[in-house]
């Protein structure tokens, strides 16, 4: 077992041994129980005892978590802790990975997400997703946003479709920037605009939940701030789960924060509690920047 002494003071001042004794955190600890409040009353999505395997390797161990209506839940943790894998379970994007197996009870509004009779197509229309790297289709801006409504037959007439496109772009805060060039390729926009286009594309199918997998990791600070504002506005209508590497971002946009570690859910609490008074030693070690 690789036991790390995670006390920075110890390195800085070896002459004061009393600070070294203060606390050490074993980062390889297997966490049995989630501390804090993983469950809530008005759950939109609820996951119980979720285990995820890639072939033989287990990526997620016995995670239970609720995501409430109109709530932003941030998932944080060091690289490889399973937070993205967990997020991708919620709209079954893991189905596209060969050898990936998901166990446990996952429900959306009380309906099972996994199950032999569940059709993933309407599920994914209800649970939209925004990815780490902006991935606009090589089509026009208009076509990018209109893609979802078209395949789901949401709009029957052109005027209706125009309305959905405009509304989605407005809500994604992109309308004013692109209204004069809707027929230009979406790939020609800047990175931040592309990501907002992807958010508009996701909104256009009127999902109930939006999953965001590190939506700002490829963006500059100004574009990031714009997206964070947007997430706050979107909360009024949607339920949002966001995976992020930035603790500041988690603190700014979310109401609750879940800390993942080595495939275990260590702690879930109000965001304020997590960042000011973490209950688990691992959470504290992570948010104070001692590893990760």
């Amino acid at each position: 077992m690789n036991t790390m002494t995670l006390d920075t003071a110890g390195h800085a001042a070896p002459a004061q041994p009393q600070t070294v004794e203060r606390e050490t955190v074993d980062t390889q600890t297997v966490v049995k129980e989630t501390v804090g409040q993983p469950l809530c009353d008005n759950a939109k999505l609820s996951m119980r005892n979720v285990n995820v395997f890639y072939g033989e390797a287990q990526a997620i161990h016995d995670v239970s978590l609720d995501i409430g209506r109109n709530e932003v839940v941030a998932m944080i943790g060091p690289s490889g802790c399973g937070k993205s894998t967990f997020l991708r379970c919620l709209n079954r994007m893991n189905d596209t990975i060969e050898g990936c197996r998901v166990d446990g009870d996952l429900t959306l509004d009380g309906e099972a997400i996994y199950g032999p009779k569940v059709d993933v197509v309407p599920l994914r229309a209800r649970v939209g997703m925004v990815f780490q790297k902006p991935n606009p289709f090589p089509k026009t801006i208009y076509e990018n946003v209109a893609y979802g409504p078209k395949i789901h037959g949401i709009a029957s007439r052109r005027a209706e479709l125009d309305e959905i496109v405009e509304d989605s772009l407005r809500r994604a805060g992109l309308w004013n920037e692109v209204k004069d060039r809707l027929d230009k390729p979406g790939t020609g926009l800047s990175g931040g605009q592309q990501q907002r286009l992807c958010i508009a594309r996701a909104i256009a199918v009127s999902p109930e939940v939006i999953l965001m997998d590190e939506p700002c990791s490829a963006l500059d600070p100004i574009a990031t701030a714009r997206i964070e504002e947007l997430i706050d506005e979107l909360r009024e209508k949607y339920t949002i789960a966001i995976v992020t590497h930035s603790m500041q971002q988690a603190a700014r946009v979310s109401q609750r924060t879940a800390y993942f570690h080595l495939g275990h859910l260590v702690e879930v609490n109000d965001t304020e509690t997590v960042f000011t008074n973490p209950q688990h030693a691992l959470t504290e070690a992570y948010i104070t920047g001692r590893f990760g």
Partner: peptide
């Protein structure tokens, strides 16, 4: 064709064949 485009289409609720016909092949 980048996997991210397929993910994007699938994430919007496209079926496999819609993804292939409307996103992958045009790209």
């Amino acid at each position: 064709v980048p996997q991210s485009l397929r993910d994007g289409a699938l994430g919007l609720g496209s079926t496999k064949s819609e993804t292939v016909r409307k996103v992958v092949i045009p790209a």
